[in-house]
Computed example of a mutant assay.
Amino acid sequence: MRVDKYLWCIRYFKTRSIATKACKDGKVKVNGDSIKPSRDVYPNDKITVRKNQITYELQVLDTPKSRLGAKLVDMYRKDITPAETLQKMDLLKYTKDYYRKKGSGRPTKKDRRDIDDWFEEPDKDIDANKEEE
């Protein structure tokens, strides 16, 4: 089975064309060698995939006939990604939260109205005081 089709079948990529592009860009290696998308994979091959700033490592156990359900993926591959790499994923999540907290950013329509009301209130009070004098 082709390596791009294999990665699509075991759900590492959403579409086969994305898997093909990753192979062409050098983000997929088989047994340490950069490969073309048409390279065949066999049982006991070691595949390294660079995706979302994380390098996943997996071992081919068998080749499926077609795309699999998420529960059946472990029958065809063994995830041998080091624990340190998976900890990087957690750190990336924390850094994203640090730069922008949930709910921050552009103000909503309600927020803008509250801001406008806050700025308009002192002006009305000043105008009312001038009329009284």
Rank of each mutant, 00 (worst) to 15 (best):
R112A: 09
K14N: 07
Y42K: 15
C9K: 07
R106V: 10
F13Y: 15
I54E: 01
E57W: 01
K46T: 11
E84A: 07
Y6H: 07
D127Y: 09
T63D: 01
E131K: 05
V28Y: 05
V28F: 09
S17T: 10
K102V: 13
E84C: 00
S38E: 14
K78P: 01
L68M: 11
A83S: 12
P37F: 03
W8K: 14
Y94S: 10
D116N: 11
K65Y: 08
D33G: 02
K71C: 03
T81W: 02
M1A: 09
A22T: 07
K46C: 07
A83H: 12
G26L: 09
Y99I: 15
D4V: 01
T95V: 11
R16F: 00
V30C: 13
T108Q: 01
T85E: 15
A22H: 04
L86K: 11
K130M: 14
P43C: 02
D90M: 04
P37S: 10
E84N: 10
R2V: 07
P64K: 08
C23A: 13
T55K: 00
I126W: 12
S34E: 12
D125L: 15
R77A: 07
E131S: 05
K130C: 09
T95S: 04
D40K: 14
K78A: 06
K88F: 04
V73P: 05
I10D: 06
E133C: 01
Y6R: 03
D4Y: 01
V73T: 12
R2Y: 09
K93R: 15
K96H: 04
D127M: 14
I10E: 06
R67N: 06
K124W: 08
K27N: 14
E120G: 02
T55S: 06
Y12Q: 13
G69F: 01
G32E: 15
D25R: 12
K29E: 15
K124P: 00
G32W: 12
Y99T: 12
K65Q: 06
D97F: 14
R113A: 03
Y6G: 06
C23K: 07
K36H: 06
K46G: 00
D117L: 12
P64H: 07
K5E: 14
D33H: 10
V3T: 10
K102F: 03
A83K: 12
P122R: 01
E121S: 08
K96R: 14
I126K: 00
Q53L: 08
K130F: 15
T85M: 04
N129T: 09
R39K: 14
M89K: 15
V41E: 09
D114G: 10
T81Q: 02
Y42W: 05
L91P: 00
K102A: 08
I18W: 02
A70K: 10
D25M: 12
D79T: 03
D111E: 14
K46N: 11
V41L: 05
D79P: 02
D45E: 11
N44R: 06
M75S: 09
L72I: 00
R106K: 10
A19L: 06
L7I: 09
T15A: 01
E131I: 11
N31W: 04
K24F: 00
K101G: 08
L61Y: 04
F13P: 10
D123P: 00
A70T: 08
R11C: 11
F119P: 00
N52Y: 03
K5T: 14
